[in-house]
Design a protein around this nucleic acid. Sequence first.
DNA 1: GCGTCCAGGTCTACC
DNA 2: GGTAGACCTGGACGC
Length: 300
Amino acid sequence: MKLLVDVPSGFNFLRTVYSHGWCSLPPFHVEKASSQLQRVIELSGGKSAVIRICQPARTRLAVEVAGGSALGAAKRREIVSQVRSCFRLDEDYSEFYRAAKSYPAFRWVPKIGAGRLLRAPTVFEDVVKMICTTNCSWALTEVMVVNLCKKLGVEVDEGKFTFPRPETIAENTEKFLRKEIRAGYRAPYLLELSRRLARNDFDAESWRHSDLPTNELYDLVRSVKGIGPYAAGNILKLLGRYDYLGIDSWCRKQFFEIHKNGRRTSDRVIENFYERYGEWKGLFFWMDVTKDWYAREFPF
DNA sequence: GCGTCCAGGTCTACC
DNA sequence: GGTAGACCTGGACGC
């Protein structure tokens, strides 16, 4: 079964897929040969599906649902809604692009349709993955996320698993998360987050539609154990707020090479550098340090 | 092959 | 408010 999804003018599928590392973490998977993004998605009523997304025309995405002929209209709408959310199709980037056009160094951004950051269908998945990126190599992040899906997700097709639900993680032990998931000292953080969500202690999904000023939303995100300035800044970007940079060691290194001839500076200097970009500073920062990715079809 | 050192963010305790 | 040390893992390096 194939679904068609309208996209805004200038939308660039591959540039959104490769906007950051999420596309290489399950349940996302890039099929380079066909330039498709595969994703295992969970639907209401305990159903799941494997979908493959590509952009056959400038104005729309095509979503192939494997074995989905029996899906009714409501389920099809759910799939389209998740795809629209992951690709940020309903967010307005016109102000960002207008700003980018006014800076010679960023005129390339609207030209190629960069700037949309791929996100997961749920805030929970984004937060868990962000915690798994802290204080470790990307290779270890992949190990943790693969283990979460394989050991706690539901197998929908051979070797294809859903991302685990909060309740599933919550019912496991810290020892299991430490040793089997390889989360190490992050285990109690993942457990506490999952258990709070499973108990309905707080509603992370509401962050995507929050009316709170960004600094208050930042404090709320920071209140989750294991989320520091780097992780909070980047989670905010996935919520559509770009007022924080979310600096990590890789970004620092990129900044030093691009702007300081490799010379190290403090984070305060980096923050001051992007202050001119106002509420879009986090996105300008990310565009700046990842600019060389956009020269290649598949940057990683 | 084994041991040691280091990098990578966040938390807690302490000043 | 700022800082030091602990947390855990994988990779690099030396032996």
